[in-house]
Amino acid sequence: MTTPGRRWRAFKNGFAITLCGVAVLVALAPLLSVLWLVVKNGAPALGLDFLTKLPAPVGESGGGVGNAILGTLAIVSLACAIGLPIGIGAGVFLAERGDGKFGGAVRFTAEVLSGVPSIVVGIVAYGLVVLPMKRFSALAGAVALALLMVPPLARSTEELVRLVPRALREGALALGVPAWKTSLFIVLRTARPGLITAALLAIGRAAGETAPLLFTALNNQYWNVRPDQPTASLTVQIFNYAISPYEEWRQKAWACALTLLLLIGFLSLGARFLARSPGEAR
């Protein structure tokens, strides 16, 4: 290493590190801006009425998005009922019996499906549920969300189940416990904290989806808990309010966004908490 180049090289080193640091700030700026503005613009409108009342017509003040909150919870719950067992089951399948060619095909498909645009999945749910039932429904929305939930959940479940040491499985089998009970009550129980985290993150992602709900669950101005009826959701409500020409509706879009972020934040905080506290057991 020759001396003349040394200062130039040191400069380049510092410059590159600085540039990478700047990239972190560039990424941080929109994040902070989004979070700050959602809180600032959303908080004034947020209140008990907002969380529990039906939407008010244009021109009337007050009103809320209680039906949309309920609708999001209902659609996501229904999606979980369909998607969680399939996703977790497929993950256990990949971990326990997925070493062959078939397993490889399933794994690769799951990876690739994770990148399919959600709007396309919306078309699928439309073709599968809306067309045969001849109406928009919470069920159709839930099917779309479940289809989106399954592939990533299968992959994360596989990784979590593979982390469970083989020795635990053998310990149970050596007690004369059948393989299926070993898998359910020893392996999955050991992986449970991680699985709950993965499931909560999947639920959070589902709750934030809009595109596949636009033409499956559609929207609804009233309370609805029937799965075969059009149903409001927070995300679709944000969209409708945001692109509306009315100032007070835009206000509500921010408040909806804050509600949604709180809901998702609550889920992912819960996920973090659950991932850590019983973690010592591993």
Binding site: L28, P30, G208
Partner: peptide
């Protein structure tokens, strides 16, 4: 930070 950026729903980005 990365996880947070990824977890914000796209409709909220749209609003922003």
């Amino acid at each position: 930070v990365m996880e947070l950026l990824a977890s914000i729903p796209s409709v909220v980005y749209g609003l922003w």
